[in-house]
Simulated assay, not measured.
Amino acid sequence: MTSRTRTAITTGDGVRIAYRFDGDENKPVLLLSNSIGTDLHMWDGQVPALTEHFRLLRYDARGHGASDVPSGPYSMDRLGRDAVELLDALGLRRVHVLGLSLGGVVAQWLGIHVPERVDRLVLSNTAAYLGPASQWDQPIAELLEAPDMRVTAEMFLKNWFPARMLRGDNEVVEGFRRTLLATRREGVAGSWAAVRDFDQRRTAALIQNPTLVIAGEHDTVTSADHGKELAATVPGARFTVLPTVHMANVEGQTEFLEAVVAFLAEGS
């Protein structure tokens, strides 16, 4: 069921982007795009159910996982073009796209700038804008001056999961903690800069692809209001709220998968 024709591509600016396929190559391709501080394994728990319907294409965004970690600020344009260059290198003309958090911003960018490459969009726990830009400068500077990722990792986990999942030794949470601690600060800081500088509140109205927006009722990173505003901006978008914090795919896996699969299946 798993096929790996290559392990990485190199972008036009010389950055290696790691990826993998899972599932039957005869099924529709679903591109999965990740949040900051994670790698392609953030979807591991959902792979068995999703590969019943799709061939999954997962990748590590620049600055994360097995991909290269260029220094300096990243831009949303560059992160979006990384995804396009991945599709180009793999000969994929058109795919479904599911993005969560930063991955949801990248998915918006694809719908805005290369709608011909996208079939249906799922934008989960994300927003069209997370400003003002000035609020990001100090966290970026502090992270780059920190000795390691420990403080930032705990902040992320607190924002991602409910308190009940953070108590004790939750195997899933521990996996995310290990990934965060192994992530280089430059990758997170560069991605925060992309979040700092993006604003798609107006351009999201250009998205014409069928779109589902998913929000977490208790999400403090990208609130349910952020999701509601995004869904109101994208023409014809559907909106659903799950009783979760930020990582809806993990905390509310059953409901999340039901919503995603039902929506994407409409395009079959």
Rank of each mutant, 00 (worst) to 15 (best):
E229N: 09
E174T: 15
N159Q: 14
M247R: 01
K228E: 14
V122Q: 03
K158C: 09
N159D: 12
D68V: 15
A182M: 12
E174M: 15
W109P: 07
A8L: 00
D88E: 15
M165T: 01
A204K: 04
S75C: 09
P115Q: 13
N125E: 13
I9N: 04
G104V: 03
F263P: 01
A259E: 15
L166C: 11
A265D: 15
G45F: 06
S33K: 04
T240G: 03
Y19T: 07
A224G: 09
M1E: 13
E251W: 02
V241Y: 01
G23D: 05
R117F: 11
R167E: 14
S191K: 07
P210S: 10
P73V: 02
D60N: 06
G80E: 06
D88G: 03
R20K: 12
S3N: 11
T10G: 03
W192S: 05
R177H: 08
V122C: 08
L110F: 06
D77P: 05
H96N: 05
R58L: 14
S35H: 02
A107G: 14
Y74E: 02
R201Q: 09
L31Q: 00
G267V: 11
F263G: 08
S35Q: 07
V234E: 00
G131D: 01
E258M: 12
V29Q: 03
L242K: 02
V122I: 05
D82T: 07
L121D: 07
R120F: 03
S191C: 14
D119H: 14
I214G: 06
G12K: 13
A153M: 05
Q46V: 09
G111M: 10
L50N: 04
P28Y: 04
E251H: 09
A259M: 09
T203G: 06
V105D: 03
L32H: 04
T179S: 03
R201S: 12
V151C: 07
R178Q: 15
G99M: 09
T220I: 15
E145G: 13
E174A: 13
D22Q: 11
A83R: 07
D148Q: 14
E52K: 12
G91E: 05
R196H: 08
R16I: 03
G91F: 13
R4C: 04
V241N: 01
D197A: 14
P139T: 04
S223L: 10
G91S: 11
A232L: 04
K27I: 08
S33A: 13
H246A: 03
R164C: 11
R167W: 12
D60Q: 03
E145F: 03
N170V: 05
V122T: 08
P115C: 11
F156M: 14
P210L: 06
A237I: 07
E258V: 11
I214E: 02
G111E: 09
T7G: 14
V241C: 11
T240P: 02
A8S: 15
A163G: 08
R185W: 10
L143P: 12
P139S: 02
L40I: 04
I140D: 08
V29I: 11
G23P: 01
E266N: 02
L166S: 10
V118S: 00
D137N: 13
R62D: 01
V172P: 06
V234I: 15
L181W: 12
R62T: 07
L31T: 00
D219G: 10
P243S: 05
V221C: 05
R201T: 03
E258F: 13
G131R: 08
L212S: 02
Y19A: 00
H64D: 02
W192L: 14
V261Q: 10
M247K: 04
P243I: 07
V195H: 08
R177K: 13
